[in-house]
Amino acid sequence: MLEIKNLHASVEGKEILNGIDLTVNAGEVHAIMGPNGSGKSTLAQVLAGHEGFEVTDGSVTYEGKDMLELSAEDRACEGVFLAFQYPVEIPGVSNTYFLRAAVNAQRKYHGEEEYDAVDFLSLVKEKMKIVEMDEKFLNRAVNQGFSGGEKKRNEIFHMAVLNPKLSILDETDSGLDIDALRIVAGGVNKLRSKDNAIVLVTHYQRLLNYIEPDFVHVLYGGKIVKSGGKELALELEDQGYDNIREASDSAVAV
């Protein structure tokens, strides 16, 4: 589904991604971990098409297409979803209105008929159950006045409504209490299928107790320095990133 080769990206001339190689197949869940500033969020944003980052080298192939050629909205329409680390507030625009605009833009892209307000509402109400969200969130402005946990839940709600092929969850677990974490993880597990793929970018191993990944990758210095199974995450939580740092810094030195 997704093949990243030797991806380099920089912001204001400063290189942040330093040759990423990663292959994600349908049905897989990948977790990407790493210390602060290792490039995790940058990778997520570059994949979603944020123009603040410049791709300087490498390639990203998604469903056989050159993804780097596509605009952010076209990537979204092709089924790429990013759950934001800091979901953005849009005052005065209701959650439902926003989502309907998004779904209809995507349907238009595929030459499908747009939803009317009534049909859309019934779809949305169905999907709310996945993240145990209250209906009052439908009429509230997008993310405005939401608590941190509610914002994260709303992201997974968006994911449920948009039904993407490739979901990138950027620190969706950060700042959640145990109950909220269970709900968010439960939602993601319900949406997990053999046809879609999920990339979890996370700072804390805790999430992986709730969403079991097929692969764990460690990002350091803009590169994947280690890959493994679920046990790698536990190892990291116990030992921290110091070993990784030493190993990769010395490798660079040699």
Binding site: G149, E171, S174, G175, H203
Partner: peptide
């Protein structure tokens, strides 16, 4: 009283 909050702390 003083409280210092870290990254992602609630």
């Amino acid at each position: 009283r003083y409280a210092v909050l870290g990254r992602d702390t609630n």
